[in-house]
């Protein structure tokens, strides 16, 4: 029943439009706290989508993908402190991320499996150390302050709410386009079998670098918005490996390689985080660890796959009951 509803195209379009309209209107009806919570959910959803382009579609796990978040935030912050307007500063952050992808990505992407995963952690650590010690440019351990928007808080909250929302929608659309495109076939072929992909004429180096660049651009823009939103950043904060790991976990929870999985994962995770274990700050890490273990043991394929499976099962049972 429910599944048929999902499969009907018209209903799907109406449903999606309703959700979008709802999310567009909601910040005018709720308090600043909820607007901020939703903004952070959008941010994590965006970051999870970006990392899932690598994990779910390409089959590479950039454990240190947060490096682009930090690069985006820092480049934007430094540029803005020199009087460059936010949109331009944001683009500069994205460009720096692209450069890192090209110069470091090409050799690093030759590595497979664990080596790639941990090389990205190394990359993050190295760039973080540079940011921490280039005090003249970045403020070092003191952190970096962004110019504050001259407006009342509610308006500022909504401003960032819509920015993050737009970025998330863009990330979703990008992933849909990629899946359906020729480029998407190249990416999926590489995940399936890199040698076979090469034998079919797919330039794996270019393809892998390209998808990582897309992931990096999205991540770095999220970092730029985050920095401007928080108006203060530190290296511990934006180069924090935990951000990337949380996103990987959200992706796992929702379902890697699905359109909606990472979004669903981010939504559930952030709500849980805010509602449940913000009450137990002392055990925050431990609870995160335990949830991870539970997800791996009990929903290894992610929620989307589990839901699909239970729908199918329900359908079969329905049929059997009918016959």
């Amino acid at each position: 029943m429910l599944r048929q509803l999902f499969e009907n195209k018209k209903i799907r379009i109406i449903g999606i439009s309703a959700i979008v309209l709802f999310l567009m209107g909601i910040p005018w009806l709720i308090t600043g706290y909820w607007v901020r919570l939703l903004t952070s959910i959008f941010m994590y959803a965006t970051l999870s989508k970006a990392i899932d382009l690598m994990i779910g579609y390409l089959g590479y796990v950039p454990f240190g993908n947060v490096v682009f978040f930090g690069l985006g935030a820092y480049t934007t912050g430094i540029a803005m402190s020199h009087g460059i307007p936010f949109p331009l500063a944001m683009v500069m952050g994205a460009l720096i991320s692209i450069m890192v992808c090209i110069f470091i990505g090409v050799p690093v992407l030759r590595l497979r499996g664990h080596y790639f995963a941990v090389a990205t952690v190394g990359l993050n650590g190295a760039i973080m150390a540079i940011a921490l010690n280039a005090t003249a440019l970045t403020g070092g351990a003191m952190g970096l302050t962004f110019p504050v928007l001259p407006a009342p808080p509610e308006i500022i909250y909504r401003y960032f709410y819509y920015m993050m929302f737009a970025l998330m929608v863009a990330a979703i659309i990008v992933s849909i386009i990629i899946v359906k495109s020729r480029f998407g076939y190249a990416v999926r072929s590489i995940k399936a079998n890199e040698e076979a992909a090469r034998a079919l004429g797919i330039n794996t180096t270019v393809t892998k670098t390209a998808i990582w660049i897309i992931s990096a651009i999205i991540t770095s823009i999220a970092g730029a918005i985050y920095g401007f939103w928080m108006s203060y950043i530190s290296t511990m904060d934006v180069f924090n490996i935990m951000i990337g790991v949380t996103c990987i976990l959200m992706t796992l929870l929702g379902g890697a390689g699905t359109i909606i999985g990472p979004i669903l994962g981010a939504l559930i995770f952030q709500f849980l985080s805010e509602m449940v274990w913000s009450q137990f700050l002392e055990f925050h890490l431990g609870i995160l660890g335990v949830i991870t273990i539970l997800v791996i043991f009990f929903i290894p394929g992610g929620l989307v796959a589990s839901l699909k499976e239970s729908f199918t099962r329900a359908k079969v049972q329905h049929k059997e009951a009918g016959s």
């Binding site: 020729r182 076939y185 190249a186 999926r188 072929s189 995940k191 399936a192 079998n193 040698e195 076979a196 992909a197 034998a199 079919l200 004429g201 797919i202």
Partner: peptide, 22 residues
């Protein structure tokens, strides 16, 4: 054989058709 696991038979062959000889 090196099939593209996780893709259907048709998608496998489509990957060949989409790339291959320039």
């Amino acid at each position: 054989t090196k099939p593209l696991v996780g893709m259907t038979v048709e998608e496998n062959v489509m990957a060949g058709a989409l790339f291959g000889r320039a």
